[in-house]
Protein backbone atom coordinates (compact mmCIF):
# COMPACT_ATOMS: atom_id res chain seq x y z
CA UNK A 1 0.00 0.00 0.00
CA UNK A 2 1.66 3.18 -1.13
CA UNK A 3 1.34 6.55 0.54
CA UNK A 4 -0.19 7.85 -2.64
CA UNK A 5 -2.76 5.12 -2.55
CA UNK A 6 -3.60 5.87 1.03
CA UNK A 7 -4.00 9.56 0.31
CA UNK A 8 -6.04 8.73 -2.74
CA UNK A 9 -8.30 6.56 -0.64
CA UNK A 10 -8.88 9.30 1.91
CA UNK A 11 -9.42 11.78 -0.87
CA UNK A 12 -11.97 9.50 -2.55
CA UNK A 13 -13.92 9.11 0.68
CA UNK A 14 -13.85 12.83 1.41
CA UNK A 15 -14.89 13.56 -2.14
CA UNK A 16 -17.80 11.15 -1.84
CA UNK A 17 -18.96 12.76 1.38
CA UNK A 18 -18.82 16.21 -0.15
CA UNK A 19 -20.05 15.45 -3.65
CA UNK A 20 -22.95 13.17 -2.76
CA UNK A 21 -25.31 15.86 -1.44
CA UNK A 22 -24.22 18.11 -4.28
CA UNK A 23 -25.26 15.46 -6.79
CA UNK A 24 -28.66 15.18 -5.12
CA UNK A 25 -29.00 18.95 -5.20
CA UNK A 26 -28.03 19.03 -8.85
CA UNK A 27 -30.56 16.36 -9.79
CA UNK A 28 -33.27 18.22 -7.90
CA UNK A 29 -32.33 21.42 -9.66
CA UNK A 30 -32.37 19.84 -13.09
CA UNK A 31 -35.68 18.24 -12.40
CA UNK A 32 -37.19 21.51 -11.27
CA UNK A 33 -36.01 23.19 -14.46
CA UNK A 34 -37.36 20.44 -16.64
CA UNK A 35 -40.69 20.64 -14.89
CA UNK A 36 -40.88 24.42 -15.22
CA UNK A 37 -40.55 25.03 -11.52
CA UNK A 38 -38.18 27.46 -9.93
CA UNK A 39 -35.25 25.40 -8.73
CA UNK A 40 -34.02 25.14 -5.16
CA UNK A 41 -30.45 26.29 -4.58
CA UNK A 42 -27.77 23.83 -5.55
CA UNK A 43 -26.53 23.67 -1.99
CA UNK A 44 -29.98 22.99 -0.54
CA UNK A 45 -29.09 19.45 0.64
CA UNK A 46 -26.22 20.84 2.72
CA UNK A 47 -28.47 23.40 4.37
CA UNK A 48 -30.93 20.65 5.10
CA UNK A 49 -28.28 18.34 6.56
CA UNK A 50 -26.91 21.11 8.74
CA UNK A 51 -30.34 22.00 9.98
CA UNK A 52 -31.26 18.42 10.68
CA UNK A 53 -28.05 17.81 12.60
CA UNK A 54 -28.78 20.78 14.81
CA UNK A 55 -32.32 19.75 15.61
CA UNK A 56 -33.32 17.56 18.52
CA UNK A 57 -34.08 13.96 17.81
CA UNK A 58 -37.71 13.15 18.51
CA UNK A 59 -37.99 9.43 19.04
CA UNK A 60 -41.14 7.41 19.18
CA UNK A 61 -41.70 6.04 22.66
CA UNK A 62 -41.22 2.44 21.75
CA UNK A 63 -38.28 2.92 19.44
CA UNK A 64 -35.60 0.38 20.32
CA UNK A 65 -31.81 0.81 20.28
CA UNK A 66 -31.84 -0.85 16.87
CA UNK A 67 -33.75 2.11 15.55
CA UNK A 68 -31.04 4.48 16.74
CA UNK A 69 -28.24 2.23 15.54
CA UNK A 70 -29.59 1.69 12.04
CA UNK A 71 -28.85 5.16 10.54
CA UNK A 72 -25.22 4.88 11.54
CA UNK A 73 -25.00 1.36 10.14
CA UNK A 74 -26.60 2.39 6.85
CA UNK A 75 -24.30 5.36 6.63
CA UNK A 76 -21.29 3.14 7.34
CA UNK A 77 -22.31 0.68 4.61
CA UNK A 78 -22.71 3.44 2.05
CA UNK A 79 -19.41 5.00 3.00
CA UNK A 80 -17.72 1.64 2.56
CA UNK A 81 -19.35 1.27 -0.84
CA UNK A 82 -18.13 4.72 -1.87
CA UNK A 83 -14.65 3.89 -0.64
CA UNK A 84 -14.49 0.76 -2.80
CA UNK A 85 -15.98 2.06 -6.02
CA UNK A 86 -13.30 3.73 -8.11
CA UNK A 87 -14.45 7.26 -8.73
CA UNK A 88 -11.15 8.90 -9.53
CA UNK A 89 -8.59 6.16 -9.37
CA UNK A 90 -8.48 2.40 -9.33
CA UNK A 91 -5.59 2.48 -6.88
CA UNK A 92 -7.60 2.18 -3.70
CA UNK A 93 -6.17 0.26 -0.73
CA UNK A 94 -9.69 -0.68 0.30
CA UNK A 95 -10.65 -1.98 -3.13
CA UNK A 96 -9.62 -5.61 -2.54
CA UNK A 97 -11.92 -5.67 0.47
CA UNK A 98 -14.90 -6.23 -1.74
CA UNK A 99 -15.49 -7.18 -5.32
CA UNK A 100 -18.70 -6.42 -7.13
CA UNK A 101 -20.51 -9.35 -5.53
CA UNK A 102 -19.57 -8.13 -2.06
CA UNK A 103 -20.64 -4.66 -3.11
CA UNK A 104 -24.10 -6.03 -3.82
CA UNK A 105 -23.86 -7.51 -0.33
CA UNK A 106 -23.07 -4.13 1.21
CA UNK A 107 -26.13 -2.60 -0.37
CA UNK A 108 -28.13 -5.59 0.82
CA UNK A 109 -26.86 -5.11 4.36
CA UNK A 110 -27.88 -1.47 4.34
CA UNK A 111 -31.26 -2.43 2.99
CA UNK A 112 -31.82 -4.96 5.77
CA UNK A 113 -30.93 -2.42 8.42
CA UNK A 114 -33.18 0.28 7.08
CA UNK A 115 -36.08 -2.13 6.58
CA UNK A 116 -35.74 -3.42 10.12
CA UNK A 117 -35.58 0.11 11.45
CA UNK A 118 -38.73 0.89 9.50
CA UNK A 119 -40.51 -1.97 11.22
CA UNK A 120 -39.21 -1.03 14.64
CA UNK A 121 -41.66 1.65 15.69
CA UNK A 122 -44.56 -0.47 14.62
CA UNK A 123 -46.61 1.91 12.52
CA UNK A 124 -48.63 1.01 9.48
CA UNK A 125 -46.49 3.00 7.07
CA UNK A 126 -43.22 1.82 8.48
CA UNK A 127 -43.91 -1.85 7.93
CA UNK A 128 -45.42 -1.06 4.53
CA UNK A 129 -42.24 0.69 3.53
CA UNK A 130 -40.03 -2.07 4.87
CA UNK A 131 -41.96 -4.70 3.00
CA UNK A 132 -41.86 -2.80 -0.27
CA UNK A 133 -38.18 -2.06 0.08
CA UNK A 134 -37.45 -5.75 0.47
CA UNK A 135 -39.68 -6.42 -2.54
CA UNK A 136 -37.71 -4.05 -4.71
CA UNK A 137 -34.52 -5.48 -3.27
CA UNK A 138 -35.19 -9.08 -4.14
CA UNK A 139 -36.27 -8.13 -7.62
CA UNK A 140 -33.29 -5.92 -8.29
CA UNK A 141 -30.58 -8.18 -6.96
CA UNK A 142 -30.76 -10.96 -9.58
CA UNK A 143 -30.74 -8.39 -12.36
CA UNK A 144 -27.75 -6.64 -10.84
CA UNK A 145 -25.98 -9.95 -10.48
CA UNK A 146 -26.55 -10.79 -14.14
CA UNK A 147 -25.11 -7.41 -15.10
CA UNK A 148 -22.07 -8.22 -13.02
CA UNK A 149 -21.81 -11.63 -14.63
CA UNK A 150 -21.76 -10.09 -18.09
CA UNK A 151 -19.03 -7.66 -17.08
CA UNK A 152 -17.11 -10.38 -15.34
CA UNK A 153 -17.22 -12.45 -18.52
CA UNK A 154 -15.72 -9.60 -20.49
CA UNK A 155 -12.99 -8.80 -18.00
CA UNK A 156 -12.49 -12.25 -16.42
CA UNK A 157 -12.80 -10.71 -12.99
CA UNK A 158 -15.33 -9.53 -10.48
CA UNK A 159 -13.03 -7.03 -8.88
CA UNK A 160 -14.20 -3.52 -9.71
CA UNK A 161 -10.72 -2.18 -10.21
CA UNK A 162 -9.80 -4.94 -12.67
CA UNK A 163 -13.04 -4.54 -14.60
CA UNK A 164 -12.46 -0.83 -14.95
CA UNK A 165 -8.87 -1.25 -16.00
CA UNK A 166 -9.78 -3.92 -18.56
CA UNK A 167 -12.59 -1.91 -20.05
CA UNK A 168 -10.66 1.35 -20.11
CA UNK A 169 -7.71 -0.25 -21.83
CA UNK A 170 -9.41 -2.16 -24.56
CA UNK A 171 -9.53 -0.82 -28.07
CA UNK A 172 -12.82 0.68 -29.02
CA UNK A 173 -14.97 -2.32 -29.70
CA UNK A 174 -18.72 -2.35 -29.76
CA UNK A 175 -20.01 -4.85 -27.26
CA UNK A 176 -23.76 -5.30 -27.70
CA UNK A 177 -23.70 -7.21 -24.42
CA UNK A 178 -22.23 -4.22 -22.65
CA UNK A 179 -25.00 -2.03 -24.01
CA UNK A 180 -27.62 -4.45 -22.73
CA UNK A 181 -25.94 -4.63 -19.37
CA UNK A 182 -25.76 -0.85 -19.25
CA UNK A 183 -29.48 -0.45 -19.81
CA UNK A 184 -30.23 -3.13 -17.24
CA UNK A 185 -27.93 -1.43 -14.78
CA UNK A 186 -29.76 1.86 -15.31
CA UNK A 187 -33.06 0.17 -14.56
CA UNK A 188 -31.69 -1.41 -11.43
CA UNK A 189 -30.13 1.83 -10.24
CA UNK A 190 -33.42 3.66 -10.67
CA UNK A 191 -35.17 1.07 -8.56
CA UNK A 192 -32.46 0.82 -5.94
CA UNK A 193 -32.23 4.55 -5.45
CA UNK A 194 -35.98 4.97 -5.05
CA UNK A 195 -36.24 6.91 -8.28
CA UNK A 196 -39.28 7.63 -10.37
CA UNK A 197 -40.66 4.70 -12.24
CA UNK A 198 -40.49 2.66 -9.05
CA UNK A 199 -40.62 5.17 -6.24
CA UNK A 200 -40.87 8.92 -6.03
CA UNK A 201 -38.32 10.73 -3.89
CA UNK A 202 -40.51 13.83 -3.79
CA UNK A 203 -43.75 12.18 -2.86
CA UNK A 204 -45.67 12.91 0.25
CA UNK A 205 -48.61 10.72 -0.47
CA UNK A 206 -48.24 7.97 2.08
CA UNK A 207 -49.58 5.04 0.16
CA UNK A 208 -47.27 5.46 -2.81
CA UNK A 209 -44.09 5.79 -0.83
CA UNK A 210 -41.36 3.26 -0.41
CA UNK A 211 -38.23 4.94 0.82
CA UNK A 212 -40.02 7.85 2.40
CA UNK A 213 -42.43 5.56 4.21
CA UNK A 214 -39.54 3.79 5.88
CA UNK A 215 -37.98 6.92 7.29
CA UNK A 216 -41.14 8.65 8.45
CA UNK A 217 -40.28 8.20 12.11
CA UNK A 218 -36.76 9.55 11.81
CA UNK A 219 -35.85 13.05 12.81
CA UNK A 220 -32.86 15.19 13.66
CA UNK A 221 -29.42 13.73 13.21
CA UNK A 222 -30.76 10.27 12.40
CA UNK A 223 -32.74 11.63 9.50
CA UNK A 224 -29.74 13.65 8.42
CA UNK A 225 -27.60 10.52 8.34
CA UNK A 226 -30.19 8.61 6.38
CA UNK A 227 -30.60 11.39 3.84
CA UNK A 228 -26.87 11.65 3.53
CA UNK A 229 -26.62 7.90 3.14
CA UNK A 230 -29.28 8.05 0.41
CA UNK A 231 -27.21 10.68 -1.39
CA UNK A 232 -24.14 8.52 -0.96
CA UNK A 233 -25.99 5.58 -2.45
CA UNK A 234 -26.96 7.61 -5.48
CA UNK A 235 -23.38 8.78 -5.78
CA UNK A 236 -22.09 5.23 -5.37
CA UNK A 237 -24.40 3.86 -8.03
CA UNK A 238 -23.57 6.75 -10.37
CA UNK A 239 -19.86 6.24 -9.91
CA UNK A 240 -20.23 2.51 -10.34
CA UNK A 241 -22.18 2.99 -13.54
CA UNK A 242 -19.67 5.50 -14.84
CA UNK A 243 -16.76 3.32 -13.87
CA UNK A 244 -18.21 0.21 -15.48
CA UNK A 245 -19.64 1.66 -18.66
CA UNK A 246 -17.67 4.89 -19.21
CA UNK A 247 -14.36 4.10 -17.57
CA UNK A 248 -12.24 6.52 -19.58
CA UNK A 249 -10.36 9.04 -17.53
CA UNK A 250 -10.18 7.12 -14.28
CA UNK A 251 -6.62 7.16 -13.03
CA UNK A 252 -4.57 4.01 -12.87
CA UNK A 253 -2.42 2.67 -10.09
CA UNK A 254 0.26 4.91 -8.56
CA UNK A 255 -0.61 8.01 -10.43
CA UNK A 256 -1.59 10.80 -8.12
CA UNK A 257 -1.51 13.52 -10.75
CA UNK A 258 -3.80 11.65 -13.07
CA UNK A 259 -6.16 11.35 -10.16
CA UNK A 260 -6.29 15.12 -9.76
CA UNK A 261 -6.93 15.38 -13.47
CA UNK A 262 -9.69 12.83 -13.20
CA UNK A 263 -11.67 15.01 -10.79
CA UNK A 264 -13.02 17.56 -13.30
CA UNK A 265 -13.87 14.75 -15.68
CA UNK A 266 -15.79 13.00 -12.94
CA UNK A 267 -17.67 16.20 -12.20
CA UNK A 268 -18.64 16.56 -15.84
CA UNK A 269 -19.71 12.93 -16.07
CA UNK A 270 -21.76 13.18 -12.90
CA UNK A 271 -23.29 16.41 -14.11
CA UNK A 272 -24.44 14.81 -17.34
CA UNK A 273 -25.61 11.73 -15.48
CA UNK A 274 -27.63 13.86 -13.07
CA UNK A 275 -29.27 15.67 -15.99
CA UNK A 276 -30.19 12.36 -17.59
CA UNK A 277 -31.60 11.09 -14.33
CA UNK A 278 -33.73 14.20 -13.96
CA UNK A 279 -34.90 13.78 -17.54
CA UNK A 280 -35.87 10.16 -16.94
CA UNK A 281 -37.74 11.16 -13.83
CA UNK A 282 -39.58 13.90 -15.66
CA UNK A 283 -40.57 11.87 -18.66
CA UNK A 284 -41.79 8.82 -16.79
CA UNK A 285 -44.68 8.42 -14.43
CA UNK A 286 -44.41 6.42 -11.25
CA UNK A 287 -45.77 2.98 -11.83
CA UNK A 288 -47.98 0.93 -9.60
CA UNK A 289 -46.01 -1.06 -7.10
CA UNK A 290 -47.02 -4.31 -8.77
CA UNK A 291 -45.69 -3.09 -12.08
CA UNK A 292 -42.27 -2.92 -10.42
CA UNK A 293 -41.72 -6.67 -10.86
CA UNK A 294 -42.22 -6.26 -14.60
CA UNK A 295 -39.88 -3.28 -14.70
CA UNK A 296 -37.17 -5.11 -12.86
CA UNK A 297 -38.00 -8.31 -14.71
CA UNK A 298 -37.21 -6.42 -17.90
CA UNK A 299 -33.91 -5.37 -16.39
CA UNK A 300 -33.19 -8.99 -15.57
CA UNK A 301 -34.13 -10.04 -19.08
CA UNK A 302 -31.86 -7.45 -20.61
CA UNK A 303 -28.99 -8.54 -18.43
CA UNK A 304 -29.53 -12.20 -19.30
CA UNK A 305 -29.75 -11.36 -22.98
CA UNK A 306 -26.53 -9.45 -22.61
CA UNK A 307 -24.93 -12.49 -21.06
CA UNK A 308 -26.22 -14.82 -23.77
CA UNK A 309 -25.29 -12.50 -26.59
CA UNK A 310 -21.86 -12.20 -25.07
CA UNK A 311 -21.54 -15.97 -25.04
CA UNK A 312 -22.83 -16.33 -28.59
CA UNK A 313 -21.29 -13.46 -30.46
CA UNK A 314 -18.26 -12.29 -28.62
CA UNK A 315 -16.68 -15.39 -27.21
CA UNK A 316 -17.00 -17.64 -30.20
CA UNK A 317 -16.90 -15.21 -33.06
Amino acid sequence: MSVGGFLGQLFAIALALVLAPLLTGWVNQCRAWLQNRSAPPLLQPYYMLHKLFRKDVVLARNASPLFRFAPFAVFGCMLLACAIIPSLSTDLPLAPAADTLALVGVFGLARIFISLAAMDVGTAFGSLGGRREMLVGFLAEPALLMVIFTLALISQSTSVATIVETLAHREIVIYPSLAFAGIAFTFVSLAENARVPVDNPATHLELTMIHEAMILEYSGRHLALIEWAASLKLYAYSCLGLALFFPWGIAERDNFLAMIAAAPLLLIKLGIGGCLLAAIETVNAKMRIFRAPEFLGTAFLLAVLGLLVRLLLEVRA
Binding site: D56, V57, V58, L59, A60, R61, N62, V121, G122, T123, A124, F125, G126, E206, L216, E217, S219, G220
Partner: peptide, 10 residues
Protein backbone atom coordinates in the same frame (compact mmCIF):
# COMPACT_ATOMS: atom_id res chain seq x y z
CA UNK B 1 -30.19 15.30 22.63
CA UNK B 2 -33.15 13.00 22.40
CA UNK B 3 -36.78 13.65 23.12
CA UNK B 4 -39.34 10.89 23.38
CA UNK B 5 -42.77 11.38 21.98
CA UNK B 6 -45.64 9.65 20.27
CA UNK B 7 -44.90 8.01 16.96
CA UNK B 8 -45.43 10.46 14.12
CA UNK B 9 -46.96 8.05 11.56
CA UNK B 10 -47.74 10.89 9.18
Amino acid sequence: RIRRSRAWDC
